[in-house]
């Protein structure tokens, strides 16, 4: 009985984590490139809407999936266009895109269906298939947890692993990290920083778009207005906990999935719905603050450790020993004889 309940709970954790994992990965790739991705929210919204629409038109979930991916990529590229080509402030541009997307998806939904809040009544769309893993059926807890999840739930885990390999080992991944750490260095060896940003935003958009597709074609089977409800930001938070490490970001997203799952469970009890709904957001804020404090602490400790290491060693200064013209004689006032004298004395 209780094993079954734990299994079911974990099942729902995994299910609820799926969009968060995609959002976290979408933020993670940006973090590796030194970018701050607040727009996963928009990517997911468009992915969710376009996915459902294409699915409805063509009757194929797979084309719907593809459509959702494209929508996410386009959203990402728009941000790149505004910030890289247009040199708009990154924060402001993303706020603007989020604003335009939350209204824009509703508007588009209306244009296509005539309905202003949901596609459930007007578009015939399906969900992506659930995958049965019969060999897991009899394993306690784990079986219940992993079996019969949506395709994209497995996809999320796979995506984290692939992204890890991509960032660590692929040429493009190495370039993305180089740009993130020192854009000037990358530029100086001919890696185009702006192209890398565009690419990063496209990949980020792809991941966000898939997350959106899961929202409307996995988690539920229709698009509802503002259905992403801050999941993009939660993903951002998960990614920043581990400085953009994809596997770590996935695990952190799962932690947020737990708070989602608890909130869902509590809704079934007598607890006031609205207060329960606050839970995931409150957890995010608290976690974000805790991480920030930890980051500061470790930074301070590192400095102190280094300090104690070097304190006993003499001659630790990396002194610029050479005398420059600047330092030897006043370049501004320009006395040449002093320079000549000083210069020859060295």
């Amino acid at each position: 009985m209780s094993a079954l309940r734990i299994g079911s709970f974990l099942y729902s954790v995994l299910r609820l984590s799926t969009p968060l994992i995609f959002a976290a990965l979408s933020a993670a790739i940006c973090e590796k490139a030194g970018l701050f991705n607040m727009a996963a929210e928009s990517m997911m919204l468009w992915g969710a809407l376009i996915g459902v629409m294409v699915n409805g038109w063509t009757g194929s979930v797979w084309l719907g999936f593809l459509g959702g991916c494209c929508a996410g990529v386009v959203t990402g590229l728009l941000i790149a266009l505004a910030t890289v080509k247009g040199k708009a402030d990154l924060m402001l541009a993303q706020i603007a895109i989020n604003l335009a997307s939350s209204g824009g998806t509703i508007f588009m939904l209306y244009v296509v269906t005539g309905d202003k809040s949901t596609s459930a009544m007007t578009i015939k769309s399906q969900s992506l298939p659930k995958i049965a893993l019969p060999f897991l059926k009899n394993v306690p807890v784990i079986g219940r947890m992993l079996n019969n999840q949506n395709l994209l739930t497995y996809g999320a885990i796979l995506a984290a692993i692939l992204l890890m390999i991509f960032i660590k080992r692929s040429r493009t991944g190495v370039h993305i990290r180089a740009v993130g750490e020192n854009p000037n260095a990358a530029e100086s060896v001919g890696i185009s920083v702006s192209k890398t940003y565009f690419l990063t935003w496209a990949i980020s958009g792809l991941l966000g778009g898939i997350g959106g597709v899961f929202m409307s074609m996995g988690y539920t089977s229709a698009f509802t207005k503002n259905m992403v409800a801050g999941r993009g930001y939660i993903g951002l938070c998960a990614s920043s906990m581990v400085r953009g490490n994809p596997i770590g970001a996935m695990l952190c997203a799962m932690v947020f999935g737990v708070s989602d799952a608890i909130a869902n469970q509590l809704q079934l009890t007598n607890a006031p719905v609205d207060l329960v709904m606050m839970l995931p957001y409150a957890v995010t804020i608290i976690v974000l603050i805790i991480i920030s404090v930890i980051k500061i602490r470790t930074h301070v400790r590192k400095i102190k450790n280094k300090a104690s290491q070097v304190k006993d060693q003499p001659g630790i200064l990396p002194a610029g020993l050479s005398l420059s013209l600047d330092s030897l004689y006043g370049i501004a006032s320009g006395p040449c004889s002093a320079a000549a004298a000083g210069g020859s004395s060295v």
Partner: peptide, 26 residues
């Protein structure tokens, strides 16, 4: 006409991005 007023947010988004984009008309 039933057209939802949300389409305004698209206008707003475009205005913010264009005003924020230094390169716009630079």
């Amino acid at each position: 006409t039933q057209i939802p007023p949300e389409f305004v947010s698209i206008i707003q988004g475009i205005i913010i991005v264009l005003v924020a984009a230094e390169m716009f008309l630079s």
